[in-house]
Design a protein around this nucleic acid. Structure first.
Lengths: 101, 101
DNA sequence: ACCGTTGTTCGACAATCGTCGAACATCCCC
DNA sequence: GGGGATGTTCGACGATTGTCGAACAACGGT
């Protein structure tokens, strides 16, 4: 089954922004921005695995991440090149920001 | 009365992104990005004035706009300098995007 | 063939959000 | 000062969202 990874250019800007406008998802993106690829289970942000799965789905369907299945695990990575190309400065602007909880 | 315009640095990143993650508000921001200052009433986006007022409030409280009262009107403008300073590239990235409705 | 690990999907629930009309508040002008 | 114009605030409403536990699915090792 294909995990529904849309063409980034076909995703409305508001959907991309909405995907980033959540604390948990932003933490995931921050983590992905430093480590090239990570298994879903390695994200520990105090939410259940159902919620984590949901957030990863939102990110994927917003065109922000790609997912590769390997055995029982699933590896997620940022689509940084495409993002930087279509929204230059967006990721940098968001990621450079200090953690202001 | 001061209309609660927070220090942009004190606003969580997610709140800024959430404020931009709406079609109507994005249209308002786009309009503000070209014309320096506009009265609230000059925004015609097919929503009631109550809704428009609500969206302008969200933008203001997210630190994206400033409002100046003059007579019975209220003039709104983008806080572009502060935004570009704190989130370099964010506005440009979002505004340059074609309208993909 | 089982069992444990890893993720996804399915309701369900509370909270938030976008929207509206109606009521209210200000101001300007005649 | 009465009336019209411009905005804001107040419920109310339906829709969406974040969260969870439980059930399900797929894979790997022993």
């Amino acid at each position: 089954m294909e995990p529904h990874e849309p063409d980034l250019a076909a995703v409305p800007v508001t959907a991309v922004l909405a995907a980033l406008a959540d604390d948990v998802r932003l933490q995931i993106v921050r983590a992905l921005a430093e480590g090239g690829e990570r298994a879903c289970g390695t994200f520990e942000f105090g939410v259940s695995k159902a919620t984590r799965s949901h957030h990863l789905k939102v990110l994927r369907e917003a065109g922000l991440t790609r997912t590769r299945a390997a055995g029982t695990s699933r590896y997620v990575r940022l689509r940084r090149d495409e993002l930087d190309h279509l929204y230059p400065g967006l990721l940098d602007a968001v990621l450079t920001q200090p953690n202001r909880s």
